[in-house]
Design a protein around this nucleic acid. Structure first.
Lengths: 405, 405
DNA sequence: CATGTTTTTTCGAGCAGTGAAATTAATGCT
DNA sequence: AGCATTAATTTCACTGCTCGAAAAAACATG
């Protein structure tokens, strides 16, 4: 049976986790503020912070001069994370780019490497070798920080297996079914976590906009792929990293346009960059999708549509319709209060908005509950990085630190 | 901020809940078995059961004679729920029928009333009056049990509002937007909970088949409506009872057949009894759906299809296609390992199976993870009742009992 | 009746949280 | 400068919970 027994150990873990979580979200603060924020008593906060300081997890910050003299009583001493007790390596692997960031325990970026990815990259070098090489490079450049490496986290696109440590399918060529997570874990003797980019997008969106932090949000990425992540009242859907959220490969029209994944009628086949271009240029729906679309071509198409070009406008309408019906269908199962469109496609949001709204209007749930707020958010790189960062640091907090004796 | 603080109180609640939960799932058992099942120490089990017995929540069972003499040491004394400390009233309100069951705290059915429901039932009598009348009738017939009434729970179809205590839309005529839950709660001075029938189906399926208890299951009801409930590794999706799981009103074909809900192209418009009949008799898709379909008519159509009738077979194929694409689309968001088809439509499962599987095959997730196991389960009344029962008793356990001083 | 076996209870220890009171460290007023 | 005021932290005595080990209880067997 399950071991959900609660004892003094789990109490300590929970409450230490609360303290660490509050510091992650709100940054360094006074013990009094911590008590208010977590709901713990002052006495407990004293005990917990004392332990954490003993363990060097957090430290008292130097008061910023007596400048802030707008206080009557004893001035508060802030406590905040000790940046130097650990570090994490964060990989963002994309169809055409890979980025490795080294961050410290305080969440500060230490160093970063970017490398191009081509369809042959992982055919030539095994993914584990490719990643290990870059990580070693970063370690060599930052020996001090790298010494405290506690986690490697990798953002990928595709379908993870149920344990969340293998990639069963991916739009990134030759990346699926290569056990690079395990290999990296044993090569660097550090836990390695795989995350779906869609999920991180949702996580990142929460962190970037405080208003969304506790809302139910669907974050849709539109670009060279179409992907989605969801949060439910501040909780990421799909605990662990198991299940698939392959929104882009939800069927839009039975037997419809050919998708990069090999299926037909996926939303992606209409709404991704290659799908829109194919429609705009009247290439047959069954034509094999282009392996990659230069961003200037996609931007050019947006410009033409905005200038009134019929074919381009039509292509974005079709894309909006696919995304809209996908959302409308998703809402029959899960009903977010906000929908965030991110990625290159967010720049074309104005061109798709009408069709998206029309499709949403065809959902009973929208008629009854009112439609969700659909907004576009230009930048998509930051949400993914921020999501990866916060998820990984939080992982360290809750499982390494909160459990310390 | 959130009050997720853990203290000795929450520890007690959690561990008492564990004990009560084990007794719910596995029935009366010895303290040693409880220790093994919950993971708590013998000492804690002694303390907890002692308290619960003091509070009359559970009791030691009389040993069943010395007949079971296959023991060496001290014979175990079983503890089990004290049936008499409470009771719950469970309403199952359906399009054409309402049923009220009075159950005791041990989960034993005490008495039951069934009443027909017609499209005018709730137009003539306010829902609260209709329900209160029947509950009072049951109370009069069972004064002893009814004295301990702790909860009223109501199974309804439709969309609940976000708090889960109002019905915003319902296929049951004149039931939506009538605040009957609140009215009953104040009339009987007891908490009243509203549950979506689809959710209960999922909950009930877990209880009825132990193999499904911790699996990820989508339970689809096919009959006069189409509905779905989901469990994820044993957890019911959509905590609380907020979000909408209106699977039946997921769009299948843009601008498709007219649905009872007023929208067009819903799965229900193709796969429910009225949808299938409409297709079979070549009634135009835009014709207003029949308000109710007599079950013999639906069964007759199944018989004809099984006998080879072309029109009937075609209608079930269309229905299977709608359900199949609905599932395939859902799987882009959630990915269950099992799909259970229940309700009258389960009898036509053989006629729909091929189309369902074909549609599932068009989902990328199925190709990668393998398709879920789709099986039909004839009886749908028991899952709903069982789900309502267990959910309500569990509610009492966890919030009334576990929190006792 | 003594002994072995299995179930339950008892007992003392340990741990984490809490409220109230005490302490600390500034500011403001006279 | 000296003292009251204010606000942040810490200290302390106490509570409630779980746990392991040992004791007690309740039978079966030879």
């Amino acid at each position: 049976m399950a071991r959900n027994v609660s004892d003094s150990d789990s109490v300590r873990r929970q409450n230490r986790g609360l303290v660490l979580g509050a510091l992650r979200i709100q940054g360094a603060m006074s013990r009094t503020a911590l008590a208010a924020s977590t709901g713990l008593s002052h006495a407990s906060i004293t005990a917990i912070t004392h332990d954490l300081i003993d363990q060097q997890v957090i430290a008292e910050l130097e008061p910023a001069e007596k400048s802030d003299s707008r206080g009557r009583g004893r001035p508060a001493t802030l406590v905040g994370f000790n940046r130097h007790i650990g570090a994490a390596a964060l990989f963002e692997v994309d169809v055409n780019r890979a980025r490795l960031s080294l961050v410290d325990y305080g969440g500060v970026l230490v160093d970063r490497i970017e490398s191009p990815v081509t369809p042959t990259t992982f055919a030539n070098a095994p993914p584990a070798v490719f990643l290990a090489e870059r990580l070693r490079q970063l370690q060599a450049r930052n020996p001090v920080e790298a010494a405290g490496l506690r986690r490697v986290a990798i953002s990928v696109q595709g379908i993870l297996d149920r344990d969340g440590d293998g990639l069963k399918w991916s739009p990134i060529a030759h990346l699926a079914n290569r056990p690079f997570a395990h290999e990296l874990a044993s090569a660097f003797a550090v836990p390695v976590a795989l995350h779906k980019r869609g999920r991180l997008l949702a996580e990142g969106a929460r962190w970037l906009d405080p208003a969304l932090h506790d809302a139910s949000v669907a974050t849709v990425f539109v670009g060279s792929t179409v992907a989605m992540g969801m949060t439910f009242r501040g909780q990421i859907m799909g605990r662990g990293d198991e299940g698939a959220t392959e929104f882009g490969h939800m069927n839009h029209l039975p037997n419809g346009a050919l998708c990069r994944c090999g299926m037909r009628g996926c939303i992606e086949a209409y709404a991704s960059d290659y799908g829109v271009l194919r429609t705009a240029y009247s290439v047959p729906e069954t034509a094999t999708p282009a392996p990659a679309v230069p961003s200037h071509e996609y931007d050019g198409l947006i410009a033409r549509a905005e200038a009134g070009d019929r074919a381009a406008t039509h292509a974005f309408n079709i894309a909006g319709r696919a995304v809209g019906f996908g959302l409308s269908r998703m809402m029959a199962v899960f009903d977010p209060s906000h929908v965030l469109i991110v990625g290159p496609g967010a720049r074309a949001f104005g061109l798709m908005q009408a069709e998206i709204n029309a499709a949403l209007a065809s959902a009973l749930v929208c008629r009854v509950n009112g439609p969700p707020q659909v907004v576009a958010h230009r930048d998509e790189k930051e949400p993914v990085f921020k999501g990866l960062l916060m998820k990984t640091l939080n992982e360290i907090d809750q499982s390494d630190i909160a459990a310390l004796a």
